[in-house]
Simulated scan of single mutants.
Amino acid sequence: MTATYHQLDAWWWPYLFILIAGWFANDMWRILGVVLAGRLSDDSAIFTYVKSVATALVAGVIAQLIFLPSGSLGLAPMWLRLLSVAAGFAAYKASRDNVLVAVLVGEAVLLGLWAGLVGMP
């Protein structure tokens, strides 16, 4: 029996493909990371490098969201975006480095003041 292109026209085929491709692209690397991370020291050069690169990527994304936003965030004025980041950072320090509190406070400031500026109920 040979498989043809038309046999891939079943309703379930895209879901199976997403399941397999999603697992392969995501979970395989997570499992490999867990297996290999047990052998790394927190002070090793490679671990320090990976942490540095990850921190730089997050900082770059945050800078882009603040200074070059796209979509609806681009409609908010710069001072409002900077104020929400400052409020989130202050909440982060006030809550003893709780990231969830910082995100919630930053978003509350951004959305609350933006709603007040544009006159939303």
Rank of each mutant, 00 (worst) to 15 (best):
92 Y>R: 10
55 T>W: 07
45 A>W: 01
97 D>T: 11
76 A>T: 13
71 G>Q: 11
56 A>T: 09
57 L>K: 13
59 A>R: 13
102 A>K: 08
96 R>A: 15
73 L>I: 14
65 L>E: 10
74 G>K: 15
35 V>Y: 11
34 V>E: 12
62 I>G: 08
70 S>P: 00
99 V>K: 08
50 V>H: 02
107 E>I: 12
67 F>V: 15
74 G>S: 13
78 M>P: 03
87 A>K: 03
103 V>W: 05
70 S>E: 08
42 D>H: 11
47 F>N: 13
89 F>I: 15
109 V>W: 03
49 Y>I: 10
41 S>K: 06
103 V>Q: 05
61 V>C: 07
98 N>P: 00
39 R>M: 02
57 L>E: 06
79 W>Y: 12
61 V>A: 15
77 P>L: 07
90 A>N: 03
66 I>N: 02
105 V>S: 07
92 Y>L: 15
80 L>N: 11
39 R>T: 06
63 A>T: 12
51 K>L: 05
108 A>W: 09
84 S>L: 03
83 L>I: 10
84 S>Y: 04
54 A>W: 02
31 I>M: 13
69 P>S: 04
89 F>S: 09
60 G>M: 10
48 T>G: 05
89 F>Q: 00
99 V>D: 02
37 A>T: 06
89 F>M: 15
64 Q>T: 13
73 L>R: 09
43 D>C: 04
49 Y>Q: 08
62 I>N: 06
101 V>I: 10
42 D>F: 04
47 F>P: 01
84 S>M: 11
53 V>K: 07
77 P>I: 10
102 A>I: 06
38 G>K: 13
79 W>I: 08
89 F>P: 02
64 Q>F: 07
83 L>P: 01
82 L>T: 01
90 A>P: 14
36 L>M: 12
51 K>M: 11
87 A>H: 01
103 V>F: 11
39 R>W: 03
54 A>D: 11
59 A>C: 06
80 L>K: 09
93 K>R: 15
96 R>E: 03
104 L>C: 14
38 G>F: 01
92 Y>Q: 08
48 T>E: 09
58 V>M: 08
45 A>T: 11
96 R>L: 11
95 S>E: 11
107 E>L: 15
85 V>S: 08
104 L>R: 03
103 V>K: 02
98 N>C: 05
53 V>S: 08
52 S>D: 10
37 A>Y: 06
36 L>H: 07
94 A>G: 10
47 F>V: 15
37 A>C: 02
98 N>D: 09
107 E>W: 12
43 D>L: 03
51 K>N: 07
46 I>W: 04
91 A>Q: 08
88 G>A: 07
107 E>H: 13
106 G>R: 05
93 K>Q: 12
103 V>N: 01
88 G>K: 08
41 S>H: 05
91 A>D: 09
87 A>N: 00
97 D>L: 09
68 L>G: 10
67 F>T: 15
89 F>W: 03
48 T>M: 10
50 V>N: 03
99 V>Y: 07
44 S>W: 00
